[in-house]
Amino acid sequence: MENDNVLLEVKGLRKYFPIRKGFLQRAVGQVRAVDGIDFHVYKGETFGIVGESGCGKTTAARCIVRALQPSAGEIHFRAGGGEMTDVANLSRDELRPLRRHMQMIFQDPFSSLNPRMTLFDIIGEPLLVNGMADRQQRIERVEELLALVGLRPEFLQRFPHAFSGGQRQRIGIARALALNPSLIVADEPVSALDVSVQAQILNLLLALQERLGLTYLFVAHDLSVVKHICDRVAVMYVGRVVETAETQQLFESPKHPYTEALLSAVPQPDPTLRSQRIILEGEVADPANPPSGCYFHPRCRYAVDLCREQTPVLEEVEPGHAVSCHRVLELDLAGTLDAPVPQTAHS
């Protein structure tokens, strides 16, 4: 695993939130938001984390940029092309020089920009904090960044309210790019946008990656978007990674029953593909009180006694394809790419 191409390696990451109750606010239990996940991200690729709400994907992303302090685990990050450093347990001061190498793009472009700051202040702030004191230099850099994300440099002194959702997301991307980071953690960057604007932002992210050699950690729930943009994907369920594989492989031949159900649930914008969907019974497990054994077993149509008793571990079944399921070798699950390629008629 000690590969020069690995930019980020996460080992056994856990984040538990205490449940406090009563007058003394004693911890009476724990929400296991992230319950031991492992993955690595290669330099220059887009690694996707998908899952439904409450699966811990956002918490994992926030732990990686150290917006949250992980409860346990290691996060090895190669900052600025140097040695791998474990950032999981660094102090605030030790972290500060590393922070500029990992930046975040947020979901909601309406609440992630300060309405009282101009674009120059918003995008220039990371520059100022990181020692670019000269105002003229900052103005030039911000203008350059605005042009890079497809906004006009004249917008420098405007406030965020003057912009649409898509334009605001561009502002957020410009801010994230200000310090030439090597890793961009994008938490649902397009899910708050209209369909026609979503495509513009996805195109921008792809173009920037090509131009600047960025690495993306892309957190999303929309599988069509993930399929479009990611090289490799990890699927999370109740705080754990249940499957990780190359995107094409995952969609073609999923090996975990949850992945199979998730893929089949995505409505396709093509009425000729009204597919036989797998309807999962019941609800997502409660991370404060997870079921025994495999967390997915109460909803799994392939569950056997073993699944109720033993927790499966994530194991590689093919090169680059790891699955956490007891029955992985027996099951033959359906992917989404088996269906004939649709002839949507806008030729």
Binding site: S164, G166, Q167, V195, S196, V197, Q198, A199, Q200, L202, N203, L206, A207, L223, S224, V225, K227, H228, I229, C230, T247, Q248, F251, L263, V266, Q268, P269, D270, T336, L337, A339, V341, P342, T344, H346
Partner: peptide, 21 residues
């Protein structure tokens, strides 16, 4: 319809977009 990424579309290509907002 063209601008929506689909599970069946080619990944990693620039999507046709609708200009403007």
């Amino acid at each position: 319809l063209r601008s929506i990424p689909s599970i069946h579309s080619t990944p990693k290509v620039q999507l046709p977009t609708i200009t403007g907002t």
